[in-house]
C-alpha cells in the first residue's frame, strides 16, 4: 500500500470526494477498497458436473493453493445455464466439510470402537478376505451340471453416484472374479 497521506484523513476525504455526509467513497476502509472476489483470485478454474441428482448441471470449481474455494454453476452449460439447486450450491461444503472422514477406519470383529489402519494394510486385508470368501463359496456347476462359475459370497451395492469408468472397473473385476450380486441405486 502506498504511504499514507494526510489527504486520506477521513474528514478531508469527505470534502474532497464530494461525499459530504460521509455515506459513500469517503468512508470506505482500505480493506473495502482492495476487495476482490475469490473467483477472481483463484489459481485455476476447472469445469465439472454436479454430483447430486441426474440433471447434470455444469459446475465451475475455483481452486486456490490446491484447495477448493468456491463451486458455482457453469453458465456455458446448455443443461443448467449456470444455475444450481440448494444441494448443488452446497457442493463446496461436500469437499471442505469439517465433518468429512478422510482417514481409514477399521472395526475388528466384536470391537466396540474404530481403530486406524493404513491404506496398504487395509487393501491387503480386503484382498485376502475377497479371495478367501471366493474360495469358500465357489459354485462350479448347478444341480443339473450346467456351468455357474461364480461365488454367491461376495456382494456389492452402489454405483449411481460413481463415474462410468469406476462402474466399468467394478463390473469387470467382479464379473471376472465370479461375483454376481452387484447392484446399485437404479434398482432402489
Amino acid at each position: 500500500m502506498a504511504a499514507w497521506s494526510p489527504l486520506e484523513w477521513p474528514v478531508l476525504r469527505q470534502f474532497r470526494s464530494g461525499d459530504v455526509f460521509g455515506r459513500g467513497p469517503a468512508v470506505t476502509s482500505p480493506t473495502t477498497r482492495h476487495i476482490a472476489p475469490r473467483t477472481a483470485t483463484a489459481d485455476r478454474v476447472v469445469q465439472s458436473v454436479c454430483p447430486f441428482c441426474a440433471v447434470g448441471c455444469g459446475q465451475k470449481i475455483y481452486v486456490k493453493d490446491e484447495k477448493v474455494v468456491q463451486i458455482e454453476g457453469d453458465p456455458d452449460s446448455p443443461i443448467s445455464r449456470g444455475r444450481l439447486c440448494p444441494k448443488g450450491a452446497s457442493s463446496a461444503q461436500l469437499v471442505n466439510n469439517p465433518l468429512r472422514q478422510t482417514a481409514i477406519r477399521y472395526r475388528a470383529p466384536y470391537a466396540t470402537d474404530w481403530q486406524d489402519l493404513d491404506r496398504d494394510t487395509a487393501i491387503d486385508m480386503i484382498a485376502d478376505r475377497f479371495l478367501e470368501t471366493r474360495r469358500r463359496t465357489w459354485q462350479d456347476r448347478d444341480e443339473h451340471g450346467r456351468p455357474l462359475r461364480r461365488t454367491m459370497g461376495i456382494a456389492s451395492l452402489g454405483g449411481a453416484t460413481l463415474d462410468n469408468e469406476e462402474n466399468y472397473l467394478i463390473k469387470k473385476l467382479f464379473t471376472a472374479a465370479g461375483a454376481i450380486q452387484i447392484e446399485n441405486q437404479a434398482r432402489i
Partner: peptide, 23 residues
C-alpha cells in the same frame, strides 16, 4: 457382532476425473 467393518474415505467429484451419464 462379528462383522469386520472397513470404512474407506472416498474422493469427491472434484477430486477425480471421470464421466457421469445423466438422465
Amino acid at each position: 457382532i462379528g462383522t469386520e467393518v472397513f470404512f474407506l474415505p472416498a474422493a469427491t467429484h472434484v477430486e477425480k476425473a471421470g464421466s457421469f451419464t445423466q438422465t
